[in-house]
Structure formats: C-alpha cells, structure tokens
Design a binder for these strands. Structure first.
Lengths: 223, 223
DNA sequence: TAAACATTAATAGTAATACTATTATATTTG
DNA sequence: CAAATATAATAGTATTACTATTAATGTTTA
C-alpha cells in the first residue's frame, strides 16, 4: 500500500500554473508554505508578498509560478480533490457490494483528514482545513463559467461523479443521484465549518466528523 | 394578508450600520442599488465608488451608512433571512400537522423567489440571487467568530432553528435534527448555484427549484 | 572553458481599492 | 431664525495586485 500511495498520480490542469511548481525547490516551497500561511491568516489576507517574506524569496519569483493567488488556491484545491479521488479509487476497487462501496466513499469524503506523510511538501491535514474554510471561494466568482469551461473544476466533478455512479448502483431508481452526491460532498465541508464556527446549528461536536450523519442519510434515502 | 405583510417587521442588528439606511432617501437608494449592482458585477468587483456613481452620490456619503462593503452585504443577507423568517412564521402559524408544517417550511427555503412588491426598495428576486452567489462569503472570513459573537448571524440561525423545531416535532428520535436543518437551508443555496454554473453535478434543471429533492429527503429520513 | 540560457532576487513603479479627513453647502428641525 | 444634521466634493493614505527591468547566480552544452 505504501508503494501504491507513493506512485500517487495527482493530475492538475496545466492552465492553473505558469511554471509547474513540482519541478523545483522554490516551487515545492511555494506549495508547502502557501498552505501553511493560508491556514494561519486566511486566504483573503494572504498575499504573494507575505509568502515571499516567509520563504525568503521574492514576490516576483512567485509570480513566475502562479499568475495570481486565485489560481494558486484553485491549484491547491485541485490537488486535494485529486488526492481524494485516488484514495476513493483505492478504497473501493476491490469492493463488489455497492452498499459497502458507498459507505467507504462517504467515509472518505466526510471524515477528518490527517497528514499521510507520502508527500512532504503537502500537509493534507492543514490542506483539508483550507478546503473547509476556503473551497467555496474558488467557485463563487464571476469567472466560474469560464474557468469551468477551461476545466479548472474537473477533478472536483470527477470525485462527485464517482459517488453518483455508486449511488446509481445502490439504487438505480432514485431520481436525485447527482444532487445527493454533490450534497454529501459540499454539505460535509459545510458541517465541518459549522462545527468550527456556528456550533449551535450542527450536531457535530468538536472532534467529530460528518460520516454518521451522511451514512444514515444515504441509507435511509436509498434503501 | 397584504396588510400583514406590509406591517412586516424586519429585524436587523444595529451594529451592521453606522446610520440606519431605512431612515432616509439616500439610505433606501443605497439598499436598492447595492442589490442591483452586486447582482450585475458580483460582490468582489462591487465598490462604494461605483455605487456612488450609479446613484449620483458620493463614496463618502455611503460610508456614513455602512462602515464597509462587507457589513453592507451582511446587512442585505440579514434582511433576506429576516424576510424568510417572517414568511415562514406566517406560512406555518395555523398548521397543526407537523409533517405539513415541515413541507411548507422546506418549500419556502428551497423554492425560486419572486419579488413580492411590498418593499419597493428591495427586489427579493434579485436579492435571492445574491444569497445564492454570495451568502457564504459573509461567513467565510477570519472574523466569523467575532461577528457571530456580535450577533451578525442571529437571524440566519433563527430560520434554521425554526426548522430544527419542526423536525423534532415530526420525529423526536432523529439524532441529527440540527445538521439536517442546516443542510437543507445551505444545501438548497448550493444546488441553485450548481444549476446555474456546474449543471452536471445536480439534478436541478434550468428553472427548477430544490423543493422536491429536499422534501423527498426529509420524508425518507424522518418518517 | 566559455558562451548561452534559465532561474531567481531585488528594486521600482502603476492602477485600483478601501478607506479617512476636511470643508463647503444644503436641508431639516426646534 | 439659529443650530444641528446630512450630503457632496475633494484630497489624501496605506495596501494590494500586479508588471517591468535589471542584475546576480547557477546550469547546460557546443
């Protein structure tokens, strides 16, 4: 398994970067520290200047890798969903029972994430916090439609499509497979956000994850 | 009914404004045109300068009503949720059957909104588009926790709490009433966003609303 | 080994944003 | 009518999100 995970193939739309950050020390440093800095100060306050200072490099050097901070965020979120897609493929490949497959998929997208150590420049635990706090910002722009056409959100949609397929296997007659799948993925992020900030309108407590809520929901709806 | 609706009491946290915009022509103009302008160009591109030009007034005059554009957006979204709360109270007040009550509540928060003409300075249809496209931005900031303490999101939470209470009436043994209620309200906004921008991962089509999907969900989960 | 090329750092500069402050002029109200 | 208040106009500031230029460094290859 460790072997398989280290061959992990993360696919990212090459329109998201000017120069592939995986190909140099500086690039890897940008990835690593942008995750940490966005987590610390939030994406709105994050600037290339601050990142440059942090990694003892220069603002303009970062611009050689990413056109702007929005594309860097879309890059990081694509990385996350690509990693998630891989985990999901891996976890469901040898499972023939559709219900069991659905349970595994729901668990993966709803559980609390911990760093998996296979990628030293990406801390998945911190990255997953960024996904909870900032992911919708990648979609909620006036450029969504153009960026969607360019394929910026393909990986995200692929994760959801995988769940749609499993839902259809479990119950081919359920008429809202797409909405249910996107609800689970986005809704889970939202429940995690609520448990961190608006605790009174979620049942999730401090260290809990959304797995039970969504597993119960899916079973009651589909079975 | 018209009478009742025109006595409509919208409650808004007075920390959200410097001067109450409902008390002057200019204030009402700011509300009316900020909604239209945000809808046209998006909240990110929206500035007080552009709004000033549009209403033949001055940037600095707008600052006498709202400290910054973020608070204006929170004001507008509070207005919407307060309006929604009122509609919900009105629609469920004489309904004794809990299931019917839940159906009505779900319908209200998931349906497509049309302008209701009782408030000439607020176009509810346009405002509801802003809620779909921009509402999460009011929450997803590094200031959420402070602003939540200040009560900026009270009206929103009150709408959700109303639904939580109805869910508990329908099925007192269901353990995730809070998460289900917040899922329906936020999830509905998200499904509307998807039908506008990422059509392949929702079952909602162009003019459709999320009522059927969530009514079906709630019934299967609770009954 | 030297020339060529690519990468990075440093500096400077620009337009736009998100404000604040000041003043002059209306308008309302007591 | 005087005083208080509201508004418009102007100017100014710090920060952001970049772009452009140059110089220094390292790396490749003829």
């Amino acid at each position: 398994m460790h072997n398989l995970l280290s061959n992990l193939k993360i696919t990212i739309n090459d329109k998201l970067y000017v120069k592939n950050p995986e190909t140099s020390e500086l690039g890897l440093n940008i990835l690593k520290n942008s995750i940490l800095l966005i987590d610390e100060i939030g994406f709105d306050a994050f600037t290339f200047k601050k990142l440059g200072e942090r990694i003892q490099s220069n603002e303009s050097s970062i611009y050689r890798y990413f056109e702007n901070k929005h594309k860097l965020l879309v890059y990081l979120t694509s990385w996350y969903w690509s990693w998630m897609e891989y985990r999901m493929a891996f976890a469901t490949i040898n499972v023939s029972n559709p219900i069991e497959k659905l349970e595994k998929a729901i668990k993966l997208v709803t559980e609390n994430i911990i760093d998996d150590n296979t990628t030293p420049h990406i801390n998945e635990e911190v990255l997953s916090r960024i996904i909870v706090e900032e992911f919708t910002k990648t979609l909620m722009t006036k450029e969504v439609d153009n960026e969607n056409k360019e394929g910026f959100f393909l990986v995200y949609k692929r994760v959801i499509n995988r769940i749609i397929d499993i839902i259809k296997e479990v119950n081919p007659n359920y008429p809202y497979a797409k909405s249910l799948a996107s609800s689970i993925v986005e809704g889970s992020l939202h429940q995690h956000f609520l448990k961190n900030h608006l605790k009174t309108i979620t049942n999730l407590s401090e260290k809990e994850c959304a797995t039970d809520f969504y597993t119960d929901m899916a079973k009651k709806i589909l079975l």
